[in-house]
């Protein structure tokens, strides 16, 4: 038998992978630009979730793992720092995700403005109406 945490982790990872496939499908096969952009943000969020899963630390003996913030810093106690180091989750994927979120946001923002401009010119956000170029 698997434990409850393993079961939930399996569900989480399965959902993430299916989500990834659906987002890719949306980006490539939906003709509507807004839907494409939404699929793109879903893809980005899925990637970020994946990064967070990679950096997670399972609970030790029922004690929840901590966020990577050393709240007892005022005490100047090396022992507390050791406990922190042994129970906190991996901060690096979180930092990477922060960067990736901002970058994803920036790209989405620019694509939205591009779509707005396309709408001003073509009066449509459907790729089938916009196709003027041969490719």
């Amino acid at each position: 038998m698997i434990t409850l945490s393993e079961y939930f982790m399996t569900i989480l990872i399965t959902c993430m992978i299916v989500n990834l496939g659906l987002a890719l499908y949306g980006v490539f096969f939906k003709p509507n630009l807004i839907k494409k952009i939404i699929a793109l943000t879903i893809l980005g969020d899925t990637a970020n979730t994946f990064a967070l899963i990679i950096g997670y630390r399972m609970w030790v003996a029922g004690v929840p793992s901590r966020p990577p913030v050393f709240t007892e810093w005022r005490s100047n106690n090396p022992l507390l720092l050791l406990v922190f180091t042994k129970t906190a989750v991996d901060p690096l994927p979180q930092a990477l995700v922060l960067t990736a979120i901002v970058i994803g946001l920036a790209v989405t923002l620019f694509l939205v403005f591009l779509t707005l401009q396309a709408w001003k010119i073509y009066r449509s956000v459907d790729m089938r109406d916009i196709k003027r170029l041969k490719g």
């Binding site: 790209v107 779509t115 170029l133």
Partner: peptide
């Protein structure tokens, strides 16, 4: 120019998808 905007959309959407997948690769 409609063509310029269209070309940028094509370039941008697939480019952003590709870089996101690179991020997954890095993870």
């Amino acid at each position: 120019r409609g063509e310029a905007v269209e070309a940028a959309i094509k370039y941008g959407i697939i480019g952003a998808t590709a870089t996101t997948l690179y991020f997954i690769g890095l993870v």
